[in-house]
Design a protein around this nucleic acid. Structure first.
Lengths: 244, 244
DNA sequence: TCAATGCAAGTGTGATCACAAATCAAATAA
DNA sequence: TTATTTGATTTGTGATCACACTTGCATTGA
C-alpha cells in the first residue's frame, strides 16, 4: 500500500488533515437536522421528497434516506398516507418531552460536572460572554443565532459527560422538541423576555464548582422554562379561543 | 369519496379490519431489528447491502434504507470505509449502556407502576407462568424463545408507562445491547444459570402492589445481571488470556 | 346548488444502472 | 521468502425509471 508507507516516511504527511468524505446523504441529513432543531419547519407541516430534493439541489435518493432516518428518531412522523410531516404540538407530547429531557439531560450534566476540564469550562464561560455581547447590541432579534448559541452551550457540556449512549439520545430529544422551542422563543420575544443568560451563568458556576446537584437543578430550570411558558400560552389560548 | 360513505352506511364495513400496507422496507427493518435484539449477528460482524438483500430475497433498495435507520439509532455502526458492522463489545460501552438502561427503563417502570391496569398485570403474570412451564421441560435450551419472552415481558410493562418518547429510546437501547445480552445468556447457560424468573416474579409483585420504588430496584437487579456477569467474564478472560 | 364520478397531476416505493472507491488475490520484483 | 504492485471483483452511492396509490380539480348527474 503506497499510502501507508507514505504516511510513515513522509514528514509532511503528518501536517495533512484527513479529508472527510461526506456523502450527499450526510449533508442532506445534517441540513434537515439543523432546520428541525432551529424550528425552521412548522409543526404539522408536510414534507415531500421531491420538494426537498429540489430545494436542496439534489436528487430524491439522498433525501428519502435522510427522511427515513429522521422518522426513526421521531424527529418526523410518517402518516398512514405515507406522507411525512413534522409532528404537531400537543400538551401531552410537550410534557412527555420535558420529562424525558429532565431525566436524561439532567443525568448527563451531573456526569459532566465531575468530568469537565478547566479548558472546557473556559469554553462555556466564553460562550457566556459571547451571549452577553449579543444581548448588548440587540437592535435586531437574532433568534437563529440565539438558538445556535444555546445549542452549542448545552452540547459543549453534554459532550463532557463521556457517554456515547446518552448524547445521541439528547440529540434526538432536541430534534423532537425543536419545533416547540422555536414557538416558545417567539412567544418569549413578544412577552418581555426573561434573562436567558442568567440560567446559563448559574449552570457555569455550578460546573466550575463541580457541584452536580446544583448543576442539574439549574439545568432543569433552564430547559423547563420554554416548556411551561408554551404550556401556559397554549392552555390560555384554548380556554378563550379555539378549543381545537 | 365512496369509501367514506360506505363506512357510514354499510353495516358490514364495521366488521372489516383495515388492511395494513406494510412496505418491504418496513419488513426488512423489522427483520433486522429482530435479528439484532436476538443477538443473531455477532459483534464486529460486517454486513453488506447486497448480501442482506440476497438473504432477505429483495433488492438492495429497502435494505440500504433499513441499514441507514439502524445506523442512526446506533444499532449498527458506519465505518469510515463506508461499510457497516454491528458494534463491537467493549467494557466502557457495556457500562455506558447499562447506566443508560437503568436510568431510562427504571424511570419507565416507575411510571408504569402507578398506571398498569389489572388486565395488564394479569398479562405479565401469565407470562410468568409461561416462563415457568418453559423451564419445566427444559430438555433443550431454547435461547431464542427465552429472549423473545423476556422482551415481551419487559415491553408489556414499558408500554404501560404512557410515554411515547421513552419507549422508542428503550427500544434503541435494547437494539444496542442485544449482541451483548446474547453473549451473556450463552455464558449463563454454561455457568449454571441463576433463576431468571425469580427477578421477574419480584417485579410482578411490586407492580401488583403499585410500589414504584421496589419495581425499579427489582428491574435494576434484573437488567444488571447479564451485564455484570459478562463484565466479570471479559475481565477474567483479559487477565489470563489474550489482552486484546 | 350540491354531491358523485372520472381524469390528471403529484407522490412514495422499489428496481436497475453507472460510477467511484475499497478489497482481495495473483503476479512480479527484490 | 518477503514485500510491492497490478488487475479483477466487490461494495456503497447516487440517478433514473416504472408502478401503484393518493390527492385535487373539473365535469357530470340529480
Amino acid at each position: 500500500m503506497q499510502k501507508a508507507t507514505a504516511e510513515k516516511s513522509d514528514p509532511i504527511a503528518a501536517q495533512l488533515a484527513p479529508v472527510g468524505r461526506e456523502t450527499v446523504q450526510d449533508r442532506v441529513y445534517s441540513e434537515l437536522r439543523r432546520a428541525l432543531i432551529g424550528g425552521l419547519f412548522e409543526p404539522s407541516q408536510v414534507l415531500t421528497i421531491r420538494g426537498l430534493a429540489d430545494a436542496l439541489m439534489t436528487s430524491t435518493m439522498p433525501v428519502r434516506e435522510a427522511l427515513g432516518r429522521l422518522i426513526t428518531e421521531k424527529a418526523l412522523e410518517a402518516l398512514p398516507n405515507r406522507s411525512v410531516r413534522v409532528p404537531p404540538i400537543t400538551l401531552e407530547r410537550m410534557d412527555d418531552l420535558l420529562r424525558a429531557r429532565i431525566l436524561i439531560e439532567g443525568e448527563a450534566i451531573a456526569l459532566a460536572a465531575t468530568r469537565m476540564t478547566p479548558r472546557q469550562i473556559a469554553t462555556i464561560e466564553s460562550m457566556l460572554s459571547e451571549w452577553d455581547e449579543m444581548r448588548a447590541l440587540k437592535h435586531k432579534k437574532d433568534v437563529d443565532r440565539e438558538v445556535t448559541l444555546n445549542q452549542a452551550f448545552h452540547f459543549e457540556i453534554y459532550r463532557a459527560c463521556g457517554s456515547a449512549v446518552l448524547i445521541p439520545m439528547i440529540e434526538s430529544l432536541w430534534l423532537q422538541s425543536g419545533p416547540c422551542i422555536r414557538v416558545a422563543i417567539y412567544a418569549f420575544s413578544e412577552a418581555g423576555e426573561v434573562d436567558t443568560a442568567h440560567y446559563h451563568r448559574t449552570i457555569v458556576k455550578a460546573m466550575a464548582a463541580q457541584n452536580a446537584r446544583e448543576a442539574r437543578e439549574a439545568l432543569v430550570a433552564d430547559i423547563s422554562r420554554p416548556f411551561v411558558f408554551l404550556r401556559n400560552k397554549l392552555e390560555a389560548d384554548s380556554k378563550k379561543g379555539i378549543p381545537a
